[in-house]
Write a protein that binds this DNA or RNA. Structure first.
Lengths: 337, 337
DNA sequence: TACCATTAATTTAACGGTAAATATAAATGA
DNA sequence: TCATTTATATTTACCGTTAAATTAATGGTA
């Protein structure tokens, strides 16, 4: 009773195993009555075809792997939500892996996926400036890969990203129009694709408005709250910027905390804008002007792309790039005086 | 080349498949040199034992399933983060399922896990007042189940929860001590275990301070932002409470939005406290007094509990209940005048 | 020398399910 | 009537890996 298999079920029904098997897969020759009889008995015995046996035989797992840098993060959890929705509709299961931004973990996860556990991979990369060619092994194994948001430029595979350059340009421009003259750009990993594009938008916007670029205003931050707090306090006291543009959400929060500590009033003394997927940005003190990526949509698009690759590999150009637009939402943190 | 299996590798090495197999599993009789020779060749060919074949043979999947009501949610994403950490250390993989609070999806996910795909399940329930006995089938299949946070009282299985009654009592008491006389309690699903316990704490605290209990102050909310906004605005205008205690994070945010709309000033006219896992509660306007559950810790404890059940089923009492303490963190939203 | 123990390999038989090839019976048609 | 088609079921072989049973080779001991 405890672990019924197809043989026992077949015996109980006085049928062969392959007839029973057919009842669970639509295509084949089987009479309606037999099928119903089998399914009824299966329900009674609480039988389900063993997943590992089926997949071994069919050589596919109906499972996709999702690799992200962090889980407890607004952007990624929304993106995963989007992926989940699509996968569920297709009857696929989702494996989740978090790299904690450690390149070695990313490599290890990918390597462990060579064994058939997943039919495809959706990944937002850890972003170290390392050798990424290990990803090319996937192509040989016919394991499709889709990047989203954080990508490697030197790997050719379909991707879903946002218009980061434009958004950054607009964000910087917005600060300038609000009267800022000394704008700091906060970044965690300049090597990362998004770090680069976002920074270029910042630089070009400065140039357009004839504000000299000063690399002291490009501030390298980390993932540690304590370190960031120290870095930002020093920066804010020494450089006294009147505007801050943060390339990731976390750094906007860090800026707020630093301003609280230093008694700098936002937006009067310092205007703040940042990339952020925080849904309650309007509830912050002051409400935060954000560039908000369509996180859930990025997830659904990435999943759809992967499924296209799975269903019809030829139909997807390896250079395919889906670019979605982020939204600049103006709030108190960048209001004038 | 593209999909090498153990046979081809064995042939290339002039060895039998079982010798090759042994190189990948520690226990058996194999000479050091042979093992090294095999592993070297495997690396060269980028070979990994097929996961589905291994699991079919070994009858276990080294995979656990995690079922939660929502993914894009601070509490659950932190809890999943905790689960992921432990699972990773143990070399286990994680399947993720989101029920969107729909009971049928929960049942369907669980039913589909009867086929060996996962070795165990960690779940926070959808919480409908339905028939939960379908969960008892898991015991028959020897599929261990651990509940966390949102549980079914009528199912006997190990669980990790927080001291909700005490926290609610303290939260209500805190509002009373801050001068509130008319305290509303906001809840989404009163049938849910946490809904019940949290409400009892509220009721008992009122009683202790001789504040009459009035069920109009217990406000039934939903998961829809628009509906909640309407419900809360009506409630705030009609009942004019001076304190609000929200049993879930979302409702604290909804209260803030409603207050913004109605120009009610927090904390002067209305004090707000809520269960919340928001890390940036200090950045809200005003900063929000929270009861914060140790979300990540809940995840790690639940995972550890499940692994104990997997490794030594006898060692875990089905009635085992791990109770962690939440923290009441006082902030501006409940400050006096 | 004969015998046994040890080590290191191979052979074999599953694990549970599925598709192709094959069989059987009933229905159709010339 | 008999051959042919159709519908439905069964046999069989395999998916890739692994553990138990078996064999072969080596070394030590009486």
């Amino acid at each position: 009773m405890e672990n019924i298999n197809i043989k026992q079920l077949a015996k109980a029904l006085n049928l062969s195993t392959s007839t029973v098997s057919r009842a669970f897969r639509d295509n084949s020759d089987i009479s309606k009555e037999t099928k119903e009889r089998i399914l009824a008995k299966a329900k009674e015995f609480n039988y389900q075809p063993n997943h590992y046996a089926s997949n071994l035989r069919e050589q596919r797992s109906k499972t996709i792997a999702v690799i992200v840098p962090e889980l407890a993060n607004n952007f990624f959890s929304q993106a995963i939500h989007g992926i989940e929705k699509i996968a569920r509709d297709k009857g696929y299961h989702i494996l989740i892996y978090a790299t904690d931004d450690v390149f070695e973990k990313e490599v290890s996860f990918i390597r462990h996926l060579h064994n058939g556990r997943a039919d495809g991979i959706i990944m937002s990369v850890s972003g170290e400036a390392n050798d990424h060619t290990y990803l090319n092994e996937l192509t040989q194994k016919r394991l499709p890969l889709v990047f989203f948001d954080r990508v490697y430029e030197d790997i050719i595979t379909p991707r879903v990203i946002t218009n980061d350059y434009d958004s950054s340009f607009s964000a910087t421009q917005h600060l300038i129009k609000q009267g800022c003259k000394h704008i700091a750009y906060l970044v965690i990993n300049k090597n990362l694709s998004i770090g680069k594009f976002r920074m270029q938008g910042y630089i070009d916007a400065l140039q357009k408005y004839n504000i000299p670029y000063d690399d002291r205003y490009v501030v390298d931050c980390t993932n540690s709250y304590t370190k960031n707090n120290a870095i930002l306090k020093r920066m804010l006291t020494e450089l006294k910027p009147d505007g801050v543009f943060t390339s990731v959400e976390r750094l906007a929060f860090a800026t707020y905390y630093a301003c609280y500590d230093l008694n700098i009033s936002v937006p009067e003394q310092l205007k703040v804008i940042g990339f952020s997927s925080l849904e309650i940005a309007p509830l912050l003190n002051p409400s935060l002007t954000t560039i908000t990526q369509p996180a859930t949509k990025i997830g659904t698009e990435a999943a759809n792309l992967l499924f296209r690759m799975l269903e019809n590999p030829e139909s997807v150009d390896p250079n395919e790039k889906i670019v979605l637009n982020s939204k600049l939402i103006k709030r108190r943190s960048t209001e004038k005086g």
